[in-house]
């Protein structure tokens, strides 16, 4: 009989590389790195079969800090590297790390095509609404009027709403969480990892150097309850202190009501498989400083089962091998028509 081998329990530390982490002290990225490593341990992901791929930006240094395979690529193109690697090696577990500049600006095109193809990858979109690595220019998710080094008189551009964009790009898993609420982040990461297809997880991440407090209305104790709503599949949309407020739909228009004022049957029960309602939820994008703003939702907005791109590619290959037989190089070299000269 073989002696029983006792495997050492794998911990978050086992996923940390030997490289010093070089984000600014106080950066929200630390919290995300910690949660990802911890989730990797919890799910016992195989280090040798896991690949972290990133583009360029502060967040994109992430792969260097993971003791897995990794590719730090070029600005905005992470999705293309993911698509190639997953198509060639569908069995690998691939994660993509990106930021709001990387995926909403220079890589916008690749981002939407990744979602529609539904490559099986976990996409962590670190949204800090600013360009950090280039030292503080506004980003495509910065609020209008943003004063930065490149917009001293305020930005003119209307910002992107990444989750609405994702819904429009036919994403199959759309979620939002925040760096300052690791308890919320963890299950979202786990659900994203379990989802077959592209799991888009937007993470509000504080850049304490160039955009400190951008998300404080959603993350700080005093304001969090009124400005956020944590959505859960099968549960009513309630928020505010002691869940005293609720969201109901008046036709297609969401409205804030007092929970006590509505019958239980009138409450909006979150159904993450309902595309139309999920799209409405992603439109909850009001500026929290404005009067009557709808709360910002966090959680899994939408999830659907749809065939995964790389499996479709592999299935075609298998089908052709079955129908035409395996490769015969000599036949290919010969071609359909030959003639012989004696």
């Amino acid at each position: 009989m073989m002696p029983e081998v006792k495997e050492k329990k794998i911990t978050a530390k086992d996923y940390a590389s030997d490289q010093d982490v070089k984000w600014c002290p106080g950066c929200g990225d630390y919290s995300i790195l910690k949660q990802v490593q911890s989730v990797c341990a919890e799910l016992a992901l195989k280090k040798d079969e896991t690949v972290f791929i990133s583009g360029i930006g502060c967040s994109s240094r992430f792969p260097y800090y993971m003791d897995t395979y990794g590719m730090h690529s070029i600005h905005g193109r992470g999705p293309a590297f993911v698509m190639g690697l997953k198509t060639a090696r569908p069995e690998l577990n691939v994660w993509m790390i990106t930021g709001d500049g990387d995926s909403m600006s220079i890589g916008g095109n690749h981002f939407i095509h990744l979602l529609r193809r539904n490559v099986d990858v976990n996409v962590l979109l670190f949204n800090n609404q600013i360009y950090g690595l280039t030292k503080g220019q506004y980003s495509p998710t910065s609020e209008q009027g943003k004063v930065t080094k490149s917009t001293p008189y305020g930005s003119i551009d209307h910002p992107f709403n990444p989750l609405s964009l994702a819904m429009g790009a036919e994403a199959t898993f759309v979620a939002r969480t925040m760096d300052r609420d690791p308890k919320h982040m963890r299950p979202i990461l786990i659900e994203g990892e379990k989802h077959r297809g592209t799991s888009l997880i937007e993470i509000y991440q504080n850049c304490n150097i160039f955009n400190d407090g951008a998300f404080f209305p959603f993350t700080e104790k005093t304001t969090k309850a009124d400005n956020t709503i944590f959505i859960e599949h099968g549960k009513p949309l309630l928020f505010g202190a002691e869940h005293r407020k609720a969201i109901v739909l008046d036709g297609f228009t969401p409205k804030v009501v007092n929970t006590a004022d509505v019958a239980e049957t009138e409450l909006w029960i979150h159904d993450k498989h309902d595309r139309v309602k999920a799209s409405i939820l992603t439109r909850f994008f009001d500026d929290p400083r404005e009067e009557g703003a709808l709360p910002r939702p966090f959680g899994i907005f939408y999830q659907e089962k749809r065939p995964v791109y790389e499996e479709g590619v592999s299935a075609q290959v298998e089908k052709h091998v079955k129908e035409k037989g395996g490769p015969n190089l000599n036949l290919l070299l010969e071609g359909p028509n030959t003639w012989t000269i004696k």
Binding site: I53, M71, S73, I74, R77, A80, F81, V82, M83, G84, L85, K86, T87, A88, R89, L92, H110
Partner: peptide, 11 residues
Amino acid sequence: CAAIGASFGGA
């Protein structure tokens, strides 16, 4: 980029 990703994977 996809081709480079595939090469990284051994294709």
